[in-house]
Amino acid sequence: MEHDGDVIAELIADHREVEEYFARFDQAPPGSEERKRLVDALTIELVRHSVAQEHYLYPAVRKYLDGGHALADRELADHGRIEHLLNELQQRQTPDEDFAYLVRRLRTEVTAHVDEEENDLYLQMRSNVDAAVLQELGDKIRRSKKTSPIRPHPAAPDEQPAGKALAPDLGLVDRVRDYLTGRRHT
C-alpha cells in the first residue's frame, strides 16, 4: 500500500499494516496456506520498511538528534534480530512445528521495536527536525520501497554506502526469484 505524508506518517502507516498482517495471521487456520501467504506479505512489508529506514531515517537520526549514533545503532540491532527471524520463517512451512512459535517471536520483536520508535524516536524527530526535511525523507522512503529488497538478506551490509548501493540489485533479484517460484505479493 502506498502512503503519503512526511517520514513519520509514512512509517507509522507501515506499522499499522504490519499489525494488520499479524491480526490476519491469528485469524487464519493453523497450518494453512493462508498463514504462509500472510507471512510472505509480512516479510515483504518488514524488509521494505527496514531497508528504507536504514537508508534514509537512521542517517537523519545520526545527523539531527543528540545521541543519534547510539539510537541508530540500537535500531539497526533490532532490525538485525527481526531479519534473522524473517530468514528463519522463510525456510519453514506452516505445518512445521516451530512456524507459529517463530511468528510469535517475530511479533514480540516487532512490537517492542515499533513501540520504541513511535514513543521515543519519532517524537524526537518531530521535535528536532524541520518539517520540510521530514517531508523530503518521506518522499525518499516511498521511492526507496519501490525497488528495495523484499526478502531478508541478513548478510547484506546495513551501513552506507554499501547497503544503499546493493539494495536495488537485491530488490530486482528478489522480484525475479518470486516470479519464478510463484511467491505472490499482497
Results as ranks from 00 to 15, higher is better:
H185W: 09
G171T: 10
G171H: 07
D96H: 01
K164E: 15
E19K: 05
D14H: 05
D169M: 05
D40G: 10
E54L: 06
A23C: 08
V18C: 13
A70M: 12
P152Q: 04
H3K: 07
A155N: 13
M1H: 14
E116N: 07
A132D: 15
A70T: 09
D4N: 13
Y101R: 10
I141G: 11
V176W: 13
R184P: 01
V129W: 08
R62G: 09
P152R: 02
V133P: 00
E10C: 14
R184M: 12
S32W: 12
D169E: 07
V176R: 14
D4C: 12
G138I: 13
Q53K: 07
A77I: 02
V114K: 13
K63V: 01
L11Q: 14
L106S: 09
L86G: 12
V7C: 15
D139R: 13
E45V: 05
R151C: 06
D78W: 03
E109N: 08
A28T: 06
S144R: 00
A162N: 06
K63Q: 15
Y64A: 11
L38T: 05
S144F: 00
L134T: 07
D6Y: 04
I82D: 10
A70L: 14
I141R: 03
E10Y: 08
Q90K: 11
A72K: 05
L102A: 14
P30Y: 09
R24F: 10
D6N: 05
R62Y: 00
R48I: 03
A28K: 08
L123G: 04
A132E: 15
Q90E: 12
L46P: 00
P152T: 13
L121Q: 01
Q160L: 08
E19W: 11
S32K: 10
P29R: 02
N87I: 00
Q93P: 01
R107L: 01
E45C: 06
P168M: 09
